[in-house]
């Protein structure tokens, strides 16, 4: 990538630890409502991480009410991200965990990895 392209990169958010596929995370997002700002939490499993630079993003999947899967993609360098908390790592063997989309209930669990 051109050096000049790198020059306009946004600063790295230091409240975001290195993420891995399969991590159970809670993402704290700043949300503006009129002139008030509040923080919304989105908790789920990281199913993919993409690219570097300003476009870097990650997708979090969680099961909402009635067993409906909800996925949300966040831009890693977005100033709207307040912080990300990693609650646990999982033992996974691939980079993209798309297979979780076809699974529900107990079959959609991942084995925890301790380190």
């Amino acid at each position: 990538m051109s050096e000049l392209l790198k020059a306009v990169e946004a600063p790295v958010n230091e409240n975001i630890p290195p993420l891995r596929p399969g991590d159970v995370v809670s993402v704290h997002v700043r949300i503006k409502e009129g002139d008030r700002e509040r923080i919304q939490e989105f908790k789920g499993t990281v199913i993919r991480l993409r690219k570097s630079g300003n476009e870097a993003n990650f997708t979090v999947r969680r099961i909402a009410s009635n067993g409906i899967g909800v996925e949300r993609t966040f831009l890693l360098r977005s100033p709207r991200l307040d912080k990300v908390v990693v609650e646990r790592h999982s033992k996974v063997r691939r980079a993209q965990l798309y297979f979780l989309r076809e699974r529900t209930g107990k079959r959609a669990r991942l084995k925890q990895k301790f380190d």
Partner: peptide, 21 residues
């Protein structure tokens, strides 16, 4: 023309931009 990327504005919206030296 240097190339395209995206930058964040003050509201945190990602804008598609072309960089020109």
């Amino acid at each position: 023309k240097i190339g395209m990327t995206q930058v964040f504005d003050e509201d945190g919206v990602a804008l598609p931009v072309t960089l020109i030296e």
